[in-house]
Write a protein that binds this DNA or RNA. Structure first.
Length: 319
DNA sequence: CACTTGACCTGTCCGC
DNA sequence: TGCGGACAGGTCAAGT
């Protein structure tokens, strides 16, 4: 769930909302799991610090403070970061809620199967007014009365406060591959990296974060469909030309998703509590039993690389 | 060493 | 209607 396009959407939202805000307090409701820093670290480097910039690397969000500390956040599958402007600008929160409601009604009108839902089925507009809820893990309050909620149903997500200068030293940061949307990342580099995983399937290879950053299950299935490559194809059986096309499709699919505010499958929302609409444009993901938009064959759901995998059995032929 | 599987969690959905 | 169990997937640790 949050994959690169979702995390990027959140980054852009928080980038509009947070810079300049000064932290009043930070509270972890399931301490220390979701936010294991010591209270002295939080007191010394978060309380009273102001947000400078919001960055993203792979699926990791980075909130920098003028204390030269950074909140490193991984949302894993069900994590949310939702910003709520309470008093003194209560009206702006209301505007956000009505926008979210509008978008949710559009999304719901597409197909029942894809109608995004939230927890127990609450519409998005009720989310903000009901926070905190039982999925809330961390509450960060700012001096102007606004609040940032870190929610995570499944408790896989986490945040850590650490010196900004130490962020690149995190194991994950050292190992993670290049950003697929960087212009400087091209076919040659992609092909070479994929071929390091020649003993496995192409889906496992593009899901490997050390090969390429940010691809998760949704965009793996969608880009492989677009490139007409069966997800279970062994890397050694794919031509350079096909890999080159696959990179084109990965970039296309991710850019489209960012433009649509990401994918809301079950509970992803952006920084303002809004759902993403990309799944309305998905060709295979969660569309098993429906006709392939390209050839009309019935889309199947199979298991590849330990994941539920959506594939057209006709036009994504194993080579 | 390369690769695969299981664990971490909780809410939802399906079948009995 | 209630309940058990399968399933969802990002990442790391453990197993093959």
């Amino acid at each position: 769930m949050p994959e690169l396009p979702e995390v990027e959407t959140i980054r852009r939202g928080l980038g509009r909302l947070l810079p300049g805000k000064k932290v009043l307090s930070a509270e972890c409701l399931d301490s220390p799991r979701s936010f294991p820093n010591s209270s002295s670290e939080v007191d010394n480097f978060l309380h009273g610090a102001s947000v400078t910039t919001i960055r993203r690397r792979a699926k990791v969000l980075l909130i920098d403070f003028d204390s030269n500390y950074t909140l490193v956040i991984h949302l894993k599958m069900t994590g949310q970061l939702v910003f709520v402007a309470t008093d003194p600008v209560y009206t702006s929160a209301s505007e956000i809620q009505s926008e979210a409601s509008h978008e949710a009604s559009i999304a719901t009108s597409s197909t029942d199967k894809l109608a995004p839902r939230f927890g127990g089925g609450h519409p998005t507009d009720s989310l903000i007014s009901k926070l905190p809820d039982r999925s809330t893990r961390v509450i960060i309050k700012f001096t102007d009365g606004s609040i940032l909620y870190f929610n995570d149903q499944r408790k896989f997500g986490w945040m850590r406060l650490m010196p900004t200068i130490s962020v690149p030293e995190i194991d994950f940061m050292k190992r993670v591959g290049p950003e697929p949307l960087e212009d400087s990342f091209g076919a040659k580099d992609f092909i070479e990296r994929i071929k390091r995983r020649k003993g496995t399937t192409i889906k496992a290879a593009i899901l490997d974060q050390t090969v390429l950053a940010g691809v998760g299950n949704i965009y793996a299935d969608e880009s492989l469909w677009a490139a007409q490559i069966h997800p279970a194809t062994h890397v050694s059986d794919i031509t350079d030309k096909q890999l080159s096309q696959l990179l084109v499709e990965i970039k296309k699919v991710m850019n489209l998703s960012i433009a649509k505010g990401g994918s809301t499958d079950r509970n992803y929302v952006d920084a303002e509590g809004k759902k993403g609409s990309y799944l309305q444009f998905a060709n295979v993901f969660r569309r098993e039993g429906q006709p392939c938009p390209r050839c009309g064959a019935t889309i199947e759901k199979i298991r590849v690389a330990g994941r539920g995998t959506h594939v057209c059995p006709v036009c994504q032929m194993i080579q």
